[in-house]
Design a protein around this nucleic acid. Structure first.
Lengths: 126, 126
DNA sequence: ATTGACTATTGACAAATAGAGAATAGATAG
DNA sequence: CTATCTATTCTCTATTTGTCAATAGTCAAT
């Protein structure tokens, strides 16, 4: 009855006590958003989390961000080292973009541009 | 090694003999795209398939489109009747938007606008 | 009548992805 | 010494996606 995830987001007149959810589109932007942030400078997961929030992406669960980072590392788009310096907490993993990550980002860039123009087309029809 | 689906789309320097794939973003646009087409006028799946192709969304498998339509019908965003008139093939199911579908579409409209501006922000950082 | 091409939709299965929550753990302020 | 903030990982389950095959009507040519 109450679809948990992507399909049927944009529900109408639904329950009152439901937490804010993000649309499928938002989660699709996570990967390029992280790459872009890491292109600017190396960062660690906790910071990236805050950066995403600052962009209004506050609905994505931390574990999903961390997982996505590990997956992108498996793809060799990013690499990480444990930060040796004193932190304000446990040791943290600093990610930075690789050459392959830069290429992936270029592909993402093209895709983002395409999608943006498709969205514009769609919105014009309304 | 070769991720089959969403994660790791935007692979760099990969295999030659690989079919074109769409990014996760593209599939996220399927739902609103269908709603928009159906708002304009009732259509059946096969036509919608062609409409999507005309928009450059040529990588989405027909069965996914049909499935999405059935799912949106389950959500009561759209309704369908079997077309009685003679067709150039087997009977076809004509979908039309419901009142709830119109509301879902309004929500989608806002989301599309938000996402478009987020994409613009992202692209500016590159 | 049979074949092939195009129209049209559905079903089932495997694989991938997402969501939530708990677990772990260091640092710091009170 | 404990509560809170920082920081990351793991596991379980639910949902979504991708793919392929199956079904089936129409039409044209043979």
């Amino acid at each position: 009855m109450n679809p948990g995830h992507r399909r049927g987001w944009a529900m109408g007149g639904g329950g009152e006590g439901r937490r804010a959810r993000h649309s499928p589109l938002t989660s699709s932007l996570l990967e390029p958003a992280l790459l872009i942030l890491l292109k600017e400078q190396p960062r660690h997961g906790y910071t990236l989390l805050a950066n995403l929030e600052a962009w209004g992406i506050r609905t994505i669960h931390p574990s999903i961000v961390y997982r996505t980072l590990r997956e992108m590392e498996a793809l060799q788009w990013i690499e990480s080292d444990w930060e040796t310096a004193q932190t304000q907490g446990p040791p943290r993993r600093t990610y930075h973009l690789t050459v392959q990550g830069e290429e992936a980002l270029r592909n993402w860039q093209q895709e983002l541009a395409k999608v943006r123009s498709l969205i514009s087309q769609l919105l014009e029809l309304l």
